[in-house]
C-alpha cells in the first residue's frame, strides 16, 4: 500500500545530482560563452546608454517638445498632445524626470528590438505550419513562465546590468508581436493574394505589396501590446540592475514607502496610457482606407 500513499519519488541523491548537473553544465556554458555573448550584445548596450544619456542630458523642454511632436505625428490629435505635455510636466515636477527618461530609453530600445526580431519571426511562422507549431509552444513558455525564473540564467550568463534587463524585458514582451504578425498575415484575404499571384507577383511582391500592408493593423496591435508588456516588466527588470521608474518602486516595496511607490507606479501607468493612445490612434489612421469615409 505504500506505493499509493507516497509518491514514488526519484531518489534524493539522484535528484540533487540531477539539479547539480544542470547547474554545473550551465555554469560551464556561461563560463565558456559568457564573454562572447556579452561582446555580442555590446552594441545594444552602447545604444541603450547613448539614448539614456541623450534623454537625461538634453534640456527638458526640448525633450517634451520632441515627445509631443512624436505624439502629434502618431495621433494627429491636439488633445492627446496636450495631455502628453501635461503628464510629463507633472512627472518632472514630482521629481521623477530622470527615472522616467531612463525607463523611456529602455522601453524604446526593447520595443525596437522586439520589432526587429518579432516581425520576421512572425512572417516565418505565417509561411509554414511546421514553423508555427514549433514556435508557438516557445511563445507560450515565454509568456507564462514566472519572469524570475528566466532572470536566473540571464543573470548567470550576463551578470547584473542593463543588457540582461533588456533581454528579460524582450523575452516577456516579444510574444504578442510575433503572434499578431503571424495571425495578421494568415488572415490576409485569400482572394487578394490570388489576384497578386494571377498577375505574376513573386514572393517579395506578395509579402511587401500585399501581405504586410494588409496585416499592418494586426501587426500594429502587436507593437502596442509589446510596448505595454515591456512597461509592465520595468519593475522586475529593475531587480537586475535596470535604472528607471522600477527602482523606486522596488525600494518602496521593501521599505513600505506608500507615496514613493504610488507616484512611480502612476508614472509608469501614465507612460503606458500615452504610448497606448498614440499607437492605437496611429493604427486607426493606417486603416483609414477601410472605412469608406473621406470622400472627395
Amino acid at each position: 500500500m505504500d506505493f499509493f500513499a507516497e509518491f514514488p519519488e526519484m531518489g534524493r541523491q539522484d535528484l540533487r545530482d540531477f539539479k547539480k548537473g544542470i547547474d554545473a553544465s550551465f555554469r560551464e556554458f556561461s563560463r565558456t560563452y559568457g564573454e562572447a555573448i556579452e561582446t555580442f550584445f555590446e552594441p545594444l548596450l552602447w545604444f541603450l546608454v547613448w539614448l539614456e544619456k541623450l534623454l537625461t542630458n538634453a534640456p527638458w523642454p526640448i525633450v517634451i517638445i520632441v515627445i509631443c511632436a512624436l505624439a502629434w505625428l502618431g495621433s494627429r490629435s491636439w488633445k492627446l498632445v496636450a495631455g502628453t505635455a501635461a503628464a510629463f510636466l507633472v512627472i518632472g515636477y514630482l521629481g521623477m524626470w530622470e527615472d522616467t527618461m531612463a525607463t523611456l530609453a529602455i522601453i524604446s530600445v526593447a520595443t525596437m528590438l522586439c520589432i526587429v526580431l518579432g516581425i520576421p519571426l512572425g512572417i516565418l511562422m505565417a509561411r509554414s505550419n511546421r514553423v508555427q507549431s514549433a514556435i508557438t509552444p516557445v511563445l507560450d513558455i515565454m509568456q507564462t513562465i514566472p519572469s524570475f525564473v528566466y532572470l536566473i540564467p540571464v543573470v548567470m550568463l550576463l551578470g547584473i546590468g542593463k543588457v540582461p534587463g533588456l533581454i528579460a524585458v524582450c523575452i516577456y514582451a516579444i510574444p504578442p508581436i510575433v503572434r499578431l504578425t503571424n495571425l495578421g498575415i494568415r488572415l490576409v484575404d485569400k482572394e487578394v493574394l490570388e489576384a497578386a499571384d494571377a498577375f505574376g507577383a513573386d514572393y517579395r511582391q506578395r509579402l511587401f505589396g500585399v501581405q504586410i500592408p494588409l496585416a499592418l493593423p494586426n501587426i500594429f496591435a502587436g507593437v502596442n501590446q509589446t510596448i505595454m508588456m515591456s512597461l509592465a516588466m520595468v519593475v522586475i527588470a529593475s531587480m537586475i540592475g535596470v535604472k528607471g521608474l522600477g527602482l523606486p518602486v522596488l525600494r518602496a516595496i521593501s521599505n513600505q514607502y506608500l507615496a514613493l511607490g504610488l507616484l512611480n507606479g502612476l508614472a509608469i501607468v501614465t507612460l503606458a496610457i500615452i504610448f497606448d493612445r498614440v499607437s492605437q490612434e496611429y493604427g486607426r489612421r493606417l486603416q483609414a482606407h477601410r472605412q469608406g469615409a473621406d470622400h472627395g
Binding site: G209, P213, L216, H289
Partner: peptide, 10 residues
C-alpha cells in the same frame, strides 16, 4: 478579373 473584385484595399 475576379468575382469578389480582389482589389488591394490599401
Amino acid at each position: 478579373v475576379f468575382q469578389k473584385f480582389a482589389l488591394l484595399p490599401h
